[in-house]
Design a protein around this nucleic acid. Sequence first.
DNA 1: TTTTTTGCAAAGGGTTTGCATCCCC
DNA 2: GGGGATGCAAACCCTTTGCAAAAAA
Lengths: 139, 139
Amino acid sequence: MLTEKISAAGMRLTPQRLAIVAFLEGNTGHPSAEDIFHAVRRRYPSMSFATVYNTLEAMKGVGIVRELKIDASRRRYDPNTKRHHHLMCDCCGKIVDIHVDYRLDLPAQVAEEFEVIGNHVEFFGTCRPCRERAPGIAG
Amino acid sequence: MLTEKISAAGMRLTPQRLAIVAFLEGNTGHPSAEDIFHAVRRRYPSMSFATVYNTLEAMKGVGIVRELKIDASRRRYDPNTKRHHHLMCDCCGKIVDIHVDYRLDLPAQVAEEFEVIGNHVEFFGTCRPCRERAPGIAG
DNA sequence: TTTTTTGCAAAGGGTTTGCATCCCC
DNA sequence: GGGGATGCAAACCCTTTGCAAAAAA
């Protein structure tokens, strides 16, 4: 449970955080801060953007969520911290998880200059619904 | 030359575009719109952000430049359209090109649902200068 | 009680837009 | 000359900040 990770990290368990965590737990939709804000606001009408961003930043720092840079116009958050990658549809923007562990070695020359901690692969292309909706255009 | 690609694409060759292109040609620094704006403005004091963004958007649409999403707080642009990947230093933010052609196959189940057009790998870690500057902290 | 967290509202930074003018082709 | 491109300024969107009030531990 994410809640356990939060208190284990020394973060306080506030109802707002519990609500945010409840929304994120098992969520594979890669929600933005606004998505989270609106979803959580239904239960906590006083919820503010500041709290959403504060909480996400704190959880990010403790490794509970991951910030995705796959969308150029907003940050998205992923509660799945297991190593995985993403595929984004150029047409509808849908983001899909891919659980594959690729072995990606750097050229020796580069490896000398950088100590790699991790990697992330973004695939881009078109999803089947988009292809079927607009054949020859979407792809 | 990028200028040839511009006119070949039916885009007009304005002095502003030539200046932007001159700055981008061979530039491996992954500049942001603001970087481009300031660099070009030295020669063309009337240059506006609108023109920079218009031009980048147009060039992007024609495949002359690529928009990088590696930086969460701003878009960066890469005139290198050859297949390559990037490594970003978590510490100083430096972005380095990696010219490797990885073979990344999707799981069959995913491949049925998505037609992949391309991929991009982001490595994150620490560059040598950062490690030497703050050993044990930076990495 | 102590320290963190919240919520508001305003500010900040990057990007986009509307529109009159300009100028490449 | 015509249609695309420019430049300005304002608007927009997402994110961050300051600070007083509230609440977790």
